[in-house]
Design a protein around this nucleic acid. Structure first.
Lengths: 172, 172
DNA sequence: CGATATTTGATATAATTCATAACAATTATC
DNA sequence: GATAATTGTTATGAATTATATCAAATATCG
């Protein structure tokens, strides 16, 4: 996350790293991936890590993780739902969703309200601040994050990729 | 992982779950994903989880995780490399790779050998058993796991998907 | 109605994954 | 030969994921 804290980013005042003799001779020392590059899970995972990293970077000013952003999006689109419904939709286990909501609520991005119908449930609502942060986040995601994808793939391929990933997620 | 242990899979002897009144009335109670279905990271993550789950299921007889399979593949394709090189290629941090190798070595799938050139390094080699297990794993992956992808997407789309994911992983 | 079961949010608690610091042995660099 | 860097390792902490259990509230069944 905080890449600027890494030692590798600090200006080297000490001795430079030694050169591998083979690498110094201009040879390619990189390993062969072989059938790994044809393995769906491997490529998927690598892509997912890169995309999450870019998301965090793009939305850094708002301090939102991908999971938190998805919660805010879902709350905005589905008012009046309780914790279980939100968590289930996102594939988050209910016990783990408690801490997630605590974090968002402590930042006044959402709030729990006891349901009138069923006093066991907590209806989760976006606060005004939550709506404002979500709007800013959406803008950052669209102009920085998803725009990056368009640069790399182009709009047509971007749509095709999303469609195929959705199909895999549903039917696999 | 062990879905058969889930309570939901066990035949219900107790009272059936109550029906939500709205659901019982035939209404659609599912939440709207909204822009979430257009969010690359979200769709990527969901797809990746499904694919890993299917991988584990397909390769279950050999008890190999996706990460372990990728290590075996890499060892087979790149003989004579040390731990750091293997770990770096897979994006695994060296400290975490120690336990991974311990697990594989304890099952006699690979072995560490001190390098003659540099007595700090451990060259990691596949054992005969490791090669045999890898061969069986490859077969399972090809006939069950990747074949599933072909059923869902077709060969052309499968290739396109892999290509785009690779591009995203590299250039994002 | 009243007994029993289920659901909801919550807590506690593992198991797993991911990341950083530090150490001894070895090797490279100056 | 002195100093620095690399390798494998250990220890450790943070984050993520998963299960069991509980009290309160509600539903279901007799």
């Amino acid at each position: 996350m905080t890449a600027s804290k890494n030692a590798a980013d600090v200006v080297k005042l000490s001795r430079p790293a030694r050169k591998d003799p083979a690498e110094a001779a201009g040879e390619d020392t990189s390993l062969q991936l072989g059938e790994l590059s044809e393995l769906l899970g491997y490529v998927l995972k690598r892509a997912q890590l890169k995309v999450f990293e870019d998301f965090l970077h793009c939305v850094a000013p708002l301090q939102l993780t991908p999971a938190q952003f998805s919660v805010l999006l879902l709350l905005d689109k589905n008012p009046g739902r309780n914790q279980t419904e939100i968590a289930n939709t996102l594939g988050i286990l209910r016990p783990n969703f408690v801490a997630m909501l605590d974090a968002l609520e402590s930042r006044d991005l959402c709030a729990r309200m006891r349901s009138a119908n069923d006093r066991r449930s907590h209806i989760v609502v976006l606060t005004d601040k939550g709506r404002a942060v979500l709007a800013r986040a959406k803008k950052l995601v669209a102009t920085k994050h998803e725009a990056r994808l368009n640069e790399v793939l182009g709009p047509a391929n971007r749509a095709a990729l999303l469609g195929m990933l959705d199909k895999v997620a549903r039917e696999f």
